[in-house]
Amino acid sequence: MAVRGARMLFGASVAGAYALVLAPVLAVVVISVFSQEIVSFPPEGFTLRWYANAWDKREFARGFVTSMQVALVATAIGVPLGTAAAYALTRARLPGKAALNTLLLGPLAVPGVVAGTALYLFYVRAEFWVDDDIKGTTLGLVAAHVLLTIPWTVRLVSAALAGLDRSAEEAAANLGARPLTVFRRVTLPMLRPGVVAAGLFSFIQSFENLELTLLLVGPGRITLPVAMLNYLEFRVDPTLAAVATVQIVLVGALMLITDRFVSLARVV
């Protein structure tokens, strides 16, 4: 009896946790097709016209493009650098390894608003030296977001490296492969799930980041989360929900595609 009760409680708590996490996502999708402009339940009818409306709002379209660009570039820079660092951290005999590890994971431990504030002041000072804009430029945003991608990569790739069977690398060396060839032909392919996970998480972290980005955006260079936040401070309406839904669908598609190449269940 007690066992059965426990099992039901267990099932209910799992369902509850997922309901809590997924409910707001679902809610956004649902209200994007409500016909009335002021969101209220129950709906008066359903329409798709908010999607057309959203397309006309340039701030969202531009925000989406900016976010995409920044996230892609930051991932393309952070993942290779982070992978190289993780490899050296796991494999090389180095003094001060723990300190280096802490340094590289540091951006995870510093609250985003604090790091964002520090970067803002740093950019202001640096603009003075180089006599050019850094705040509100793609370069400034990418530099900040690389800070997000490095620790996630170091973390995920280090974990993958720790779980790697070293004897496969030894076998390759035994068969005549030089160290670089061993890395390229054996280590890297075996790390692929970890690297793909690092790429996915880096992209997520960059694409959805708000706290670090808030002070660093500028006119014409606003990321999608900041654009949506600015809009939301006034109201939640179906147009915003439509934008969010498009993003949700894209993200879902991206994940399903990634999953086809690398089983996410095994890497995350």
Binding site: P24, E208, P225, L229, V251
Partner: peptide, 11 residues
């Protein structure tokens, strides 16, 4: 996580 917390707040 991918959807971002602004969207989820809207939800």
């Amino acid at each position: 996580l991918l959807v971002g917390n602004v969207v989820r707040s809207a939800g």
